[in-house]
Design a protein around this nucleic acid. Sequence first.
DNA 1: GGGGGTAAGTTTTTT
DNA 2: ACTTACCCCC
Length: 756
Amino acid sequence: MGTPAYIAGLNPEQRRAVEALDGPVLVLAGAGTGKTRVLTTRIGHIIATGRAKPHEILAVTFTNKAAREMKERIAALVGPVAEGMPWLGTFHAISTKILRRHAELVGLKSSFTILDTDDQIRLMKQVLQAENVDDKRWPARGLANQIDSWKNRGLEPKAVPAGEAGAFANGKGGVLYAAYQARLKTLNAADFGDLLLETLRLFRENPDVLAQYQNRFRYMLVDEYQDTNVVQYLWLRLLAQGRHNVCCVGDDDQSIYGWRGAEVDNILRFEHDFPGATVVRLERNYRSTGHILATAAHLIAHNDDRLGKTLFTDDALGEKPTVTGVWDSEEEARLVGDEIESLQRQGQSLDEIAILVRASFQMREFEERFITLGLPYRVIGGPRFYERLEVRDALAYLRCVSQPADDLAFERIFNTPKRGLGDSTLQTIHNSARALEVPLMQAARQLVETDELKPKQRQTIRALMESFTRWSGLMETTPPARLAETVLEESGYTDMWSKDRTAEAAGRLENLKEFVRSMEAFPDLGAFLDHVSLVTDTSDNESGEHVSIMTLHGAKGLEFETVFLPGWEEGLFPHQRSLDENGRAGLEEERRLAYVGITRAKRRAKLFFATNRRIHGLWQSTIPSRFVDELPEAHVEVKEGAQAKRYGAYGASRFDRPDAFASSYTTPGWQRAQQGGTARAKDFAENRGPLRRDSRLIEGELVASSSNVSGFTKGARVFHQKFGPGTIVLVDGNKLTVEFDKAGRKMVLDSFVQAA
DNA sequence: GGGGGTAAGTTTTTT
DNA sequence: ACTTACCCCC
């Protein structure tokens, strides 16, 4: 028996990652090194060698899209056996499956509802009201976020550190968290965080259940391990204590979800957490040409907290990434549009072109420009289908039908469409429900038998309740799509939009039709509702070549021939908030985001920064991102937009000067490198790891030359065209921080101001 | 219950 | 600048 064909095509490292089946394995897979291939081949290998049956393999991904893709690729590899992989899915989907089987052990019924963010906040508002907390001063959203982050960290109410629990609403944070959890249980509901946290609790409190899953999962695989949070880690570790065959694949340099609880530490600590782990590094890049790879590698080398990989390629050097300074975001969009048209003329497919932005507000300008040009584009990851108002209303109706205890859903639709029921009626039902300790709908049924409600309302509610009884009765016999149609028709919901003459109404009706259509594939209502809660991706398999516009976050895992990276300006990228809230860690995450952006490009990466950008409606003068300074001169080509040239005096001009790239020890970039060094030494002193200073000795960067060092000094009075008079509070090379008399503190290039 | 006025909050996003 | 949520009054 020779080497199976699926292995023969792998490089030695990939092969090692596939064949190291026993014990824990960490695969550090750099961008474009064949990560998914390794994962799928490994699963195929496990199945092909008979090490485990498909249903004995646990494979976890972060997105449904990744799960689907993996399923397809495994099927291509080992054939339809792979369809029997019931445990390939997202953390949340797998947890839901487990939780439904053992719901009663955590105080839920197996039919529990999954609440989304919106439901969470509405529920939280009720909790705050019940606990007499002023939700003006202590917004529900804030506490909901806080609870989310506690859940991400695996903390049940009783485990939250007192200091943190006390920080909200004068010390009531912990009480409110507990009250919120209690409300979830009475509603027979779980929020996203619960899906994981309650599964963890299930495992911890029921060793027999845990053992059952530990035995079942002979092999475990985790994709994007750098994005796991604490609960996910704990969840995984419990399961892995069974057979120890856990393989995690990830790239610390692509960890960009710290803001929602991901712990880069999980991947940095893997060898410690899973003793005896085999570590495989995949460093051979198959995606990008040389200059692009060198640029990305050079940039990411500025980060301290990384395991350190050196990507290499045998590919040609190819085109250098370009950096273009433009006057404002309008020119940026125009230039990008022009370049795309020119690429198109050269025969490049629009499908191979993407614009990756830091924040979604940047998208609009490109959309407008592309509409003008008649250039087909698609915004990826816009507002989600299931988050639309009309779809959420329709869902609420179905939730009431399938789950009569779903108070949140009932409140949403009880007067939609308008049927003459208001706050006072709802209040009466609420009071009654609380007194009887039953769900709202049940209370309503009992209320209509009394005189507590005014006759008109009583009649309306009676009719509504009779409808729900009828609809629920249909559940057994009617396919979900047909049932939904009936409910939306008979409730008058469809009618409401037909009568509506506003511009959106037609689209909403269209969405409702699409909604009903999407139900056709589901055997029963419950299955559909689960799907909706857990799956948020929009069907983007529409035809027609198009440019993709998306956020950098949305681009992870994708690749394009040409990638446009606009908006490389301080404050936007790195984002100010990231710096303010998370300091150096925040900066490093932003830098990883930049790295992700550049490494999406196969042949062309085109960066832009504008001198002026409108943010929240106000024009702000901006300075180039420090990440621009951190690019390697030898691998990058600097260009300039026409308008920026014309307005050269206004600032984007530092690249005009012949010596603009002369290295200098007084440049901002160099100074920052020095500061980085200091931070390193401190880490070393605290024994936080090996000193890797040498990797940080970074030369030949795109920093401004010494001739650009400002002639201004701290304390000097200056005048700015836009912001008026002000006083310099900080000088950093040619960048000045000025406290303007009227406009407040801003950072500007020295060429923008004159001595006053 | 609906309409109009005001105030606040606007990074990234999955599940 | 713009949206969205909430409040108050009709």
